[in-house]
Design a protein around this nucleic acid. Sequence first.
RNA 1: GGCCCCGUAGUUCAAUGGAUAGAACGAAAGCCUUCUAAGUUUUAGAUCUAGGUCCGAUUCCUAGCGGGGUCACCA
Length: 572
Amino acid sequence: MSSSELILKLIQNAGVEGEIKLSPVPKPEMGDLAFSCFELAKAQGKNPVECARDLAAKIDSRLHGNDNVDDCVVERVVAFGPYVNFFLNSGSIAKNIISDIQKQGKKYGFNDVGKSKKVVIEYPSNNTHKELHIGHLRNICIGNSLTNIFRVNGFNIEPINYLNDFGAHVAKCLWGLEKFHKGEKPPKGEEQKWLGEIYAEASIYLEAHPEEKEESFAMQKKLEARDRSVWSIFKKTRQWSIDGFDKVFKELGVKHNRVFYEQDVKDDGQKIVDNLLNTKIAQVGEGGAIIVDLNKFNLDIGLLRKSNGAGLYLTSDLGLAVAKNKKYKNISESIHLTGSEQNFYFKQLFKILELAGYKYKMTHIGYGLVMLPEGKMSSRTGKVVLYDDVRDLVYNKVLEETTKRHPDWNKKKLANVSLKIALAAIKFEFLKHEANKTIIFDAAMATKFEGFTGPYILYMVARINSMLRKGKVKLKNIDFSLLKESEEKQLVLLLGEYGEVIKKSFDNYNPSVLTKYSFDVAQAFSNFYAKHSVLNNENTELVKARLALCGATKQVLENCLATMSIEVIDIM
RNA sequence: GGCCCCGUAGUUCAAUGGAUAGAACGAAAGCCUUCUAAGUUUUAGAUCUAGGUCCGAUUCCUAGCGGGGUCACCA
């Protein structure tokens, strides 16, 4: 039984009913875990301070009345204002928590909240023929981590991608290719990037020359009709994009179970539009376009089909829902991860799907825009930071630092380790903030590796690894009662919170909880490490106990990093 | 203009309605013959404004101010 379960039991035995929640205590001098009496006081119509005093006295008398106390986990119970604070025995909690971690290893912190529930998550749902920028990077970091969070909470989650390879953006790019770059060959290995640039160029040009938009519309019509004159160039360029994306996905650790293409679902989407028209859910609007009037839901009007017959995102998204439900039976939740500028769009989409009869839970997570210190990104003015550029920027800085620290390493090792540290830094940076907040991406901040950063966490893992290598002790038959320093206790208590952190990150769809927690653990470890020597001790039993604590810390940090989709590296 | 999101130290971010609002970077001053200094110790520094609900508000409500997003043929 864990220490918090024992405390819960103590409180229950003292006559408190209902759900009991324990909270951390602001300062170690005030105790280790607290029970707040506000709700209890309300239920009993008493003053919370008085309530806490009575409860503490009651529990205390049981504690010293040696009737049936399971363990000596709780040393003292004290009322602090409206709180009942528990002082725990460090040895006992260390024994409980560290053995738990040792036993469960990589599975420590897992739960089965989502047992036998199927969830589909769609990300980054990017467009072929366009660039991959830092907005997509944020998407991927959050998506990777959410997928893992659902997994460790026991869900059967299917990460999928929905590649938009068949919309107006493709037509624009192909039109630009034809108009400005006919006969040119893309730089080798950079085909996807090259297409993205051409898309941006065409887009900017068409903004300035709207009279030529007809030509790109014509291109889209040909495309949707699968006209032979455009089909082979479409196939070729599409593959360039896909290959380019796959390279990035692989580097960032994205593993989609399946990819849906707009091209394959758009026609089904058009059929749904016909159905919606037949069942009077949709209607013919201005100029002959097909719309759904969602005004009674305060969602304006959804445009399902252009007046020229061509489809839009909504058209394809309806088709995607059909394809998804054909492939996956009994979906309990479908998660869509996109930029927050699509919040309204997804409200419309979900409402239309609901009207069309789909009943599973639909969740849209709109993460905030990634801004630059000088303002908003905009492909129109060319102020876009591409993924490759960020990766290179951070990588070069890490390489410089690593080379300084390890002059003896060969080039290959330097490059390999630096890339992993760089990716850890980038992922951590993009997971730090709550998803719905707009963030400012600052290159100067992204290339600092001190403090609340990925490299800091990796550094602590590296220090622990180094000690474990040097210690060469089998971590068996450990005397946990030797761990009685305050720093040791704080670290142990924190390690015990991991399961709650996993639940909290799931409840709020929020990976930033994990970054904060991993930093807290690393910091608590650092406090312990700075004050107490692990290996340089006469008492070999103490060395063993401390190494066990280090090992448990490493395990929790690794589990946490894995959930953030950050690869752990052994050497630094 | 309607709707949605956001306003917390100089900067970037935390804080299920609860204890003295936490970090990081930056600034000032210390700590490497001692387990990896990408470390550590100390100092200074903040809840946009005005009301309201509550025993208690950074958190909830109303209004205002400021920033961002979005509002049918873009994605």
